[in-house]
Simulated scan of single mutants.
Amino acid sequence: MNSNLRRVVLALTVLIGAYVGIWGYVVPDAFYTSFPGFGLHWIDIDGPFNEHLIRDVGSLYIALGAGSLVAIFTRTAMPGRVMGVVWFVFGVLHFGYHVLHPEGTTLDVVGSIVSLGVSALVGVVLMLPLEPHADRAGTSPSSAPGRA
């Protein structure tokens, strides 16, 4: 069974995917000069504008968000756990790059590393069973045969 907690965390990943993905895909030039917003600049400090690359990143985030959205509406936990693996692997690799290549102001560096670390940890949360009363067959005691 898919837990409410997993659905909430998946909804968070849908929002992350939509925020980064739609902005990067639809208006790549604004994404390049202004991401993540709030007066910070995490992209334009790292080299020349490349519309293809930014639209690809936008597409990636939209796809991640779409996978999470589908997982929200499934009855079983497995799609959400798979999306946890996907978000975790992407998050760790993305986090690792930024740890090894810090650029920008201290606020930019700290902001990007913290946000990417949280994104990777969200993947860990999604991978967890999140069903403390589930048995090895994947059913909770309340849903076992013969229980009301």
Rank of each mutant, 00 (worst) to 15 (best):
Phe38Thr: 15
Pro28Glu: 02
Thr105Met: 01
His94Gly: 07
Ser143Met: 11
Asp29Lys: 15
Asn2Glu: 12
Pro48Ala: 15
Phe31Lys: 05
Trp42Ala: 03
Trp23Val: 05
Pro36Leu: 01
Asp135Asn: 14
Val82Met: 14
Trp23Ala: 10
Leu121Ala: 14
Leu116Gly: 04
His98Cys: 04
Trp87Ile: 11
Ile62Thr: 08
His41Gly: 01
Pro145Ile: 03
Val122Leu: 15
His41Asp: 09
Phe95Cys: 04
Met78Gly: 01
Pro36Val: 05
Glu103Gly: 02
Ala137Glu: 11
Trp23Thr: 09
Phe38Gln: 14
Asp108Ala: 07
Asp135Leu: 00
Ala18Glu: 01
Ala18Gln: 00
Asp44Tyr: 02
Met127Gln: 11
Asp108Leu: 01
Ala120Asp: 04
Phe49Ser: 00
Pro28Leu: 00
Val125Pro: 03
Arg55Trp: 05
Val92Asn: 04
Ala71Val: 08
Phe31Trp: 04
Asp44Met: 03
Tyr19Arg: 00
Ile113Ala: 00
Val125Ile: 15
Tyr32Arg: 02
Leu93Ser: 09
Arg75Val: 08
Ser59Ile: 08
Asp46Ala: 13
Ala77Asn: 07
Glu131His: 09
Val110Ile: 15
Leu5Cys: 06
Ala11Arg: 02
Gly67Phe: 11
Leu60Ala: 10
Tyr61Asn: 08
Ala148Asn: 14
Thr105Leu: 05
Trp87Gln: 09
Glu131Ile: 05
Arg147Asn: 05
Gly58Val: 04
Phe90Gly: 08
Ser34Phe: 07
Thr33Pro: 01
Asp46Gly: 06
Tyr61Met: 01
Pro141Asp: 11
Ser143Tyr: 12
Gly104Arg: 01
Asn2Ala: 13
Gly21Ala: 09
Leu128His: 07
Val99Glu: 01
Ala148Leu: 14
Phe73Asn: 09
Ala144Arg: 12
Val26Leu: 08
Ser142Pro: 02
Thr76His: 14
Ala137Met: 09
Pro102Val: 05
Tyr32Cys: 00
Ile45Phe: 00
Thr13Val: 12
Glu103Met: 12
Ala18Phe: 13
Ala77Phe: 03
Gly117Thr: 12
Ala120Ile: 11
Ala30Gln: 10
Pro36Arg: 06
Leu10Glu: 01
Ser143Gly: 06
Gly37His: 00
Val99Gly: 04
Arg6Val: 07
Ala71Cys: 09
Arg7Lys: 15
Val27Ile: 10
Gly24Ile: 02
Gly17Asp: 02
Leu12Val: 15
Val27Pro: 00
Ile113Cys: 03
Arg6His: 05
Val109His: 02
Leu69Phe: 15
Asn2Gly: 08
Pro132Thr: 06
Ala71Thr: 05
Ser143Asn: 13
Phe90Ser: 09
His133Ser: 11
Ser68Gly: 13
Thr74Lys: 15
Pro28Ser: 04
Gly24Trp: 02
Pro129Ala: 11
Ile45Gly: 05
Pro145Met: 04
Leu100Asp: 00
Pro79Val: 10
Arg55Tyr: 03
Leu40Lys: 13
Ile113Phe: 01
Leu40Thr: 07
Pro145Tyr: 09
Ser3Ala: 10
Leu53Phe: 14
Ser112Cys: 00
Leu130Ala: 11
Ala77Gln: 10
Leu130Tyr: 02
Leu5Ile: 14
Trp42Ser: 03
Asp44Trp: 03
Asp29His: 14
Ile113Glu: 12
Ile43Ala: 08
Leu15Phe: 12
Met1Ala: 11
Ala11Ser: 14
Pro141Met: 14
Ala63Tyr: 08
Ile113Pro: 00
Leu40Ser: 10
Tyr25Cys: 02
Asp135Gly: 13
